[in-house]
Computed example of a mutant assay.
Amino acid sequence: MSLENLDPSRTGLVIVDLQNDFVHPDGAYARGGATSDMIAALPARVKPVADALRAKGGWVISTQFTLVPGKAGEPFISPHLKELRPFLRKNDFCPGQWGHQLLDDLQPADLTVEKVAYSAFYMSRLEWVLKKAGIDTLIFSGIVTNGGVASTLRDAHVRDFATAILTDGCGAFKQATHDAAIADLSTIATPMTCAEAVAFIEAL
């Protein structure tokens, strides 16, 4: 994909799951010991890209992993996630709660969409709001590179959105996993570092 004709007003920075419960030292994942230095470094890297795109009239889109509360507020948790992250509990990733929110450093988002699976397009209003906003190009960041980022980017690709991926604006829990995912996704998305993206956007 070529970004030569990119229109900032039709471009969105997709921030996948950079939420308090995932990344903040007081969030659910930190409480459960599921932390990563690579992931912790992402907000500071992604913020300049968000700022640059905002300044050019572009869009910042936050997709937010959600544990939908059921009776008595107990969340519906998929079996594979419950096995992987047994520390998850009531009020984690709950709409309206602090943990569910986009990290303060990256706010405000122009569009916010709850996601209940790896792909933010699955059973959500994401495609609808993107079309209403006139967005046809998406730059991807967030976590995890091989999970929510990869699934959402691939779904965007098959929906004919032009796509790019921030190679150091995404992260996983293992470097090798991240590197393999970036190499794979670079076959359908333009890879660029956050610094390269800022320079590219500012030159438009």
Rank of each mutant, 00 (worst) to 15 (best):
Q175F: 10
G96Y: 09
V198N: 03
E202W: 00
H178F: 05
M1G: 04
K132C: 07
N91M: 08
N146W: 05
I201D: 02
A189P: 07
I165Y: 08
I39Q: 00
A172Q: 09
H24G: 00
T167A: 03
G134R: 00
I15G: 02
F87D: 07
D37C: 10
F140V: 06
K47F: 03
A181Y: 13
T145L: 08
G99Q: 07
S36Q: 02
K90W: 13
S141N: 05
T152P: 03
H178C: 10
W128Q: 15
L103K: 03
G96M: 08
A181R: 09
P69S: 12
E74C: 04
G57C: 08
A44G: 11
A120H: 06
V116A: 04
M123V: 15
R31Y: 03
L53I: 04
D184R: 03
I188H: 08
D136H: 07
E127M: 05
L81I: 15
M38C: 10
L138K: 03
F161R: 11
T137D: 00
D168V: 13
K115I: 03
P8R: 04
L166P: 10
A203Y: 06
D110F: 04
D105H: 02
D104G: 02
G171H: 01
G12E: 00
A55T: 01
T137N: 02
K56V: 02
Y29M: 14
I135T: 03
L18A: 01
T190R: 06
R45S: 01
R125L: 08
A133N: 09
A28P: 07
V14W: 07
G147I: 06
P86M: 00
G171V: 05
H100A: 10
I139H: 00
T187G: 12
F140P: 05
F200V: 07
V144P: 06
S62Q: 13
V116G: 13
K71L: 13
A52F: 01
R31N: 02
A28N: 03
D21N: 12
I201R: 08
Y118E: 11
L138I: 00
M38W: 10
I165G: 05
N5R: 12
L126E: 13
L53S: 01
H24V: 11
L42P: 05
A199R: 12
D92Y: 04
C194R: 01
Y122V: 14
G169K: 09
E202Y: 00
G57R: 06
E4L: 03
D7E: 14
I201G: 04
I61T: 09
